[in-house]
């Protein structure tokens, strides 16, 4: 190949800083951060209450998205009804997972509980293929939702489902923070997380608290799964997307909701900016590079509780 051609191929692209592209990058960061934050809060809810790392969270998220597919066939043209039914089913699934599986792990080593979640994940992946097959699914098409693009000030664009995802994340975090701060059951959840023994001695039903935490965790994960599926489709890879949000939770601190939000923003910003200005391949390793940097500097995360993680 001629030398000039080689140069044409391999010369680095000029870096652009037009207002349009900066606005678009800001939107991209917001959307990706919302995805990670919505998934990460599920990890935090279960960990904060029971100190169990739920490694089946990605699969439960995927199951939630497939439940939307199920309800979509029942409520074909009533998208709100289909989503509400799928959300309800997801909440129920989380509670059932606790009652019929994780409850047996109460009092056992935390490692045993974590391994149980790994087994649950494998089981769910297999079951989903058997029930819904391996092919690509589009819940938005079944619900007759048109995922059009919204034009924002500055010329940036965001799809309708991505905008809904950002709004949902804000709503979920606002509601959860208020619930944990002011709600009776929220205060009980915090108490159970801080000292299960004292909480039990004060008459708090720990099993009910844990079941609620699993239900809420599955619900938030499922919401993320449903909105991602509505935006870009649904297949078997969604479970792995669940794992990609894990570094965000760890960076922020595994027992802090605010931490999950900040961690998601840091990871998403690093990912989007490196894709645009350096190399798209870095997006795969960046979350873990950020995580390693955080583990070196502050192992308990930005907003995590130091004493708990020191013991780990």
């Amino acid at each position: 190949m001629a030398n000039r051609e080689w140069q044409m191929i391999h010369s680095p692209l000029p870096i652009r800083h037009s207002p349009d592209i900066l606005m678009q990058l800001a939107v991209n960061i917001t959307v990706l951060a919302s995805i990670y934050a919505l998934i990460a809060c599920g990890y935090v809810l279960v960990y904060r209450v029971s100190r169990v790392l739920n490694l089946a969270h990605g699969e439960l998220m995927m199951l939630g998205a497939y439940m939307l597919l199920l309800t979509a066939s029942q409520f074909s043209s009533h998208w709100a009804g289909a989503i509400a039914a799928a959300v309800g089913l997801s909440l129920l699934t989380g509670v059932l997972v606790y009652l019929f599986l994780m409850r047996k792990m109460t009092g056992e080593m935390v490692l045993a509980a974590v391994l149980t979640t790994v087994a649950l994940g494998i089981l769910l992946r297999g079951a989903i293929v058997l029930i819904w097959s391996a092919q690509q699914q589009y819940p938005a098409q079944r619900l007759e939702i048109t995922n059009f693009a919204l034009v924002l000030p500055g010329g940036a664009r965001i799809s309708l489902c991505a905008a809904l995802l950002v709004a949902t994340t804000a709503l979920v975090y606002g509601s959860l923070l208020a619930f944990l701060r002011f709600g009776r059951w929220g205060v009980r959840m915090r108490a159970a997380g801080q000292s299960p023994l004292l909480a039990a001695q004060r008459g708090i039903n720990l099993h009910a608290i844990y079941a609620l935490a699993w239900g809420l965790s599955t619900l938030t994960g499922a919401l993320a799964g449903m909105l991602i599926a509505l935006d870009s489709g649904l297949d078997q890879t969604m479970a792995i997307i669940g794992l990609k949000a894990f570094p965000a939770a760890l960076v922020g601190g595994l027992d802090s909701l605010i931490g999950a939000l900040v961690g998601a923003l840091i990871v998403a910003a690093a990912e989007v900016l490196l894709i645009h200005y350096v190399d798209p391949l870095l997006s795969e390793v960046v979350p873990f590079l950020v995580l390693i940097a955080m583990l070196v500097v502050r192992p308990w995360g930005l907003f995590g509780t130091r004493e708990e993680l020191d013991r780990v």
Binding site: M1, L13, I35, I240, I275, P280, L281
Partner: peptide, 27 residues
């Protein structure tokens, strides 16, 4: 492509799986 008179402007290598393809498409 250059041998056929085309100008190569970008190549995106996208990791599997990716939760949002917009950052790659933006580029």
């Amino acid at each position: 492509a250059p041998g056929l008179g085309m100008t190569v402007v970008d190549k995106e290598i996208i990791p599997p799986p990716t939760p949002d393809y917009t950052p790659f498409a933006t580029k």
